[in-house]
Design a protein around this nucleic acid. Structure first.
Ligand SMILES: [Zn+2]
Ligand SMILES: [Zn+2]
Ligand SMILES: [Zn+2]
Ligand SMILES: [Zn+2]
Lengths: 140, 140
DNA sequence: CTTGCACATGAGAATCGTTATCATATATAT
DNA sequence: ATATATATGATAACGATTCTCATGTGCAAG
């Protein structure tokens, strides 16, 4: 239950927070902006404020429930922190986002950080390219 | 000469552009925000507009003279595109930025993109951690 | 089940980084 | 030197995010 999740991370169980959390869980898109999350909730008849969405997302992130990604174009995307860590590849044409995990790269990153005298705590890796084949925005 | 650089990429040689370009070349910091570049120029007595700095940086990037990085916190950093490609590791304490290049990771990225049906055109990889040893912000 | 209170909410104002507008100034080709 | 297309700087406008504050609500104590 989402209520449990909130309680577990020390957040009061409130209606807006539940709405956001369960929306994220049921949404088709895994990666969305705050604005999008807000719009979709409002469009589906919910009464919620944009400020509340931003606040909740920030708290969820601090609590480790969601992750924030800074993709190109300055847009910030959020996604539920479910399952194992992964990185992203984004189509520069249609915006499609695919996920991947590469053990070798992850290990290499740790080695690099160590060699440079850093204690690695996080990383952001996003590849950009054009998705061939199914890219709906591809030129003929 | 910086004038040559501008001409080579098809940009008119203007005083503001020269100021920005030579400042970037002489600056101690390799990675700076637009705001910082503007401030330092103004503080050193130059007469230049913030809009001009943003415009020039955008043009320089399009021309391949500089690179734009989106580090954590939504801040955008620029750096002269000198020497070979590299990625970054940033200290979450003091903000220090170190550069690195790892052939294995670069190759792997290309393979991953290909496997997922993408034509890789770019990537962003930034590691975050705490710089041990010389970190001026480290706790005692 | 009430009740009290700390905390959360929503509407809108405020702020931040960035881009657009526009009248003026300047670089380059003639 | 002159013409013309382009660049500049001040400022307004903008989109994304955060802040403010009056009101509403979760929840624990009684
Ligand atoms: Zn993801
Ligand atoms: Zn695509
Ligand atoms: Zn660099
Ligand atoms: Zn440090």
């Amino acid at each position: 239950m989402e209520s449990e999740e909130l309680r577990n991370v020390g957040l009061k169980v409130t209606t807006p927070r539940l709405k956001i959390l369960s929306f994220l869980e049921s949404a088709k898109e895994k990666h969305m902006t705050a604005e999008t999350i807000y719009r979709k909730l409002v469009d589906s008849g919910e009464v919620i404020g944009l400020a509340t969405v931003y606040r909740a997302l920030t708290q969820f992130e601090a609590a480790g429930l969601i992750t924030r990604h800074h993709f190109e174009g300055g847009q910030t995307f959020f996604e539920l922190e479910r399952g194992p860590h992964h990185d992203h590849i984004v189509c520069i044409r249609c915006g499609r986002v695919e996920e991947f995990y590469d053990k070798m790269i992850e290990e290499r990153q740790r080695e690099i950080a160590e060699k440079l005298g850093f204690t690695l705590s996080d990383h952001a890796m996003t590849l950009y390219g054009e998705c061939s084949g199914g890219c709906p925005a591809a030129k003929p």
